[in-house]
Simulated assay, not measured.
Amino acid sequence: MNLEQVKQLIEENQTNEEWQSYLRGLNPYSVEGIEQYIQSNHDARSWFDSTVDKRSAKSLETWKSNHLESAVDAEIKKRFPAKDEKEIEV
């Protein structure tokens, strides 16, 4: 069977659910397929981990720049409450 015959066979069976299921199984690009590939391939796992680390570091820096100062200020106010005029005089 040559390539043209295979193409014709696939075209003729486009509506056949069994064929479609089989062809989807040949496609490695699914979430499950990618997860399996990353788990089984050391280089892919290293790449994925480094990508996750970069994004985590970036999101942490964004959080720090947007929220850290207010969180520190709130903690300082909680630990060292402001004194009113009478407490300062005493």
Rank of each mutant, 00 (worst) to 15 (best):
Q20V: 14
E32D: 14
L9H: 15
A71R: 10
S40P: 02
E69W: 02
D73V: 01
R45V: 00
A57F: 03
A44E: 10
D73G: 00
H67G: 00
A82T: 12
E18W: 03
V72Y: 04
K64T: 09
K78W: 01
Y29P: 02
S59A: 11
R79C: 08
L68F: 06
V52E: 01
T62A: 12
N27S: 14
N13S: 11
V31T: 12
L9N: 12
L60H: 08
V6N: 01
S30I: 07
G25M: 07
D53W: 00
L23W: 06
N13R: 15
L3D: 06
D43V: 14
E11V: 11
D49S: 06
I34V: 15
P81R: 05
L23Y: 09
Q39W: 04
I38T: 09
S70A: 12
H42E: 14
R79G: 13
I88W: 10
I34D: 09
V52S: 02
H67A: 03
K77A: 11
G25W: 07
S46I: 09
A71G: 00
D53F: 08
Q20H: 05
Q14R: 13
N27I: 15
S50A: 05
D84G: 09
E61Q: 06
V90R: 12
S30W: 01
I34T: 10
E32W: 03
R55Q: 13
K77G: 00
E85Y: 13
S59H: 03
S40L: 11
Q14L: 14
S59F: 04
A82G: 01
K64Q: 05
E89Q: 10
W63F: 04
R79I: 01
W63H: 06
L68Y: 08
D43S: 15
K83Q: 11
K83E: 09
D49Y: 04
E89R: 14
I34A: 10
E85W: 13
S50R: 11
Q8Y: 09
Y37K: 11
N41W: 03
